[in-house]
Write a protein that binds this DNA or RNA. Sequence first.
RNA 1: CGGGGAGUAGCGCAGCUUGGUUAGCGCGCUGCGUUUGGGACGCAGAGGCCGCGGGUUCGAAUCCCGCCUCCCCGACCA
Length: 470
Amino acid sequence: MAGPSVLTPQNEDFPQWYQDVVAKAEMADNGPVRGTMVIRPYGYAIWERIQSAIDERIKLAGAQNAYFPLFIPESYLSKEAEHVEGFSPELAVVTHAGGEKLAEPVVVRPTSETVIGEFMAKWIQSYRDLPLLLNQWANVVRWELRPRLFLRSSEFLWQEGHTAHASARDASDYAMKIHMEVYNDFLEKVLAVPTFLGIKPPSERFAGATNTMTCEGMMRDGKALQMATSHELGQNFARAFDIFYQSEEGQAQLCYTTSWGASTRLVGGLIMAHGDDRGLVVPPALAPTQVVVIAVREDETVLTACQALHGELTAARLRALVDDGKRGSFGRRVTDWEVKGVPVRIEVGPRDLVQGLVTVVRRDTGEKAAVPVAEAPALAQSLVDDIQGDMWRAARDFRDAHTITVPDLDRAIEAAQTGFARVAWHEVGEEGEARLKAEAMTVRCLQRSDGTMPENERESGLMAIIARSY
RNA sequence: CGGGGAGUAGCGCAGCUUGGUUAGCGCGCUGCGUUUGGGACGCAGAGGCCGCGGGUUCGAAUCCCGCCUCCCCGACCA
């Protein structure tokens, strides 16, 4: 039934497989400047759906969208010592503009804590102004030495939330709320990627944060990908930018701030968490096209049947389109839709049609069924519903099968060659982290033994998740 | 920046060692025809500053010198 693979098989060369998928599914191209990325219409359609799903959740969590400038005075970055130290190696700095050398160089934002901090200070006067909950959708630039499409590009698109609160508790609760109700919910319900939730060890924290929460997903090659992060910034940025409020008692108090983000990297995560040797597999809740109706050949009866099916699918609020056969042989077109990962396809051919049948195929399992034309829309609908859950369970089972709890660091290093290792955090320590680095591994996150999110890395009984990562 | 590799058609490559007709192959692209139930086939086409600059030579993709760029591995990272 299946022809030879169009792509490099995953187990032969996973990075090459990834590049093949990005190219063949028409997701993105390299830009003319090293490290930049051109997102093609199909890749962008997926990003737009990621955006709207996340944006909807951000708004439910109470934050409002705003927009801050791309250019940031260089001096802003230096106001927070750890922040500038963390980012300076990857800054793009504009030194000339308008034909002249600038008095103060301007950096292209690598992230916006600093500018937003400046304006928070201006806007916040009283405890009544808190919490201040902002988000922006923007592009950011971090000059990368080893770029990879979607996973690590010098310019990327993301959402960055920035909030200010009256107390450490409020800030911490809100960062957690975003982590669970925006990121984890999106990853589970839309992207169908199960993750390990935890906090970063101090060595892996965001520059200037007091705590970083992460969602770590497992890719099909057993490596980890950080899919979203939420940071508690303590009073570090509030102090640097004078973000004060007057309390009910009339005293000036420093705010506590947070920041949180998810980027176009999620598209890379989608590819690597669900993809197989035939290409992308897109979960139905995310898919720009959920059902493709394929005419086996250009034939009036066939095309009429396709249009009728398309009408019914659309009426049932499924995102559907018709492949009318003008674009080449049947086999070629099927392969193209498979590479793009469309969840369900309905093949309409003259032979089946004589018997009143069409063939319905699901992308995730390849399972085919010949069903009466009249039943096809309902079947497509139920497959769309089933596939979403099945993909999540398949990804979870894969992750669990490749996650091993081990008693010590030696065995953790062994296990992390092929997946994730779970080991007591006290078995690692600073010395252990150095050993991991030598093995190209890191502590991806720390969690309690029951898998929940700890308050901080000093809690006793924490487990470390160790893996190779992107 | 350290270590490796490569620049020839949109993409992937051969040719270079030993200089010499009109620079070639696969895929893709255009036209026409036959096809179409898992990447169809035939015929006819289009497409090249052989990375850039200099040199040697009657003659350079090929030899010499200089430069530039890209890719892979490492250090940094959403």
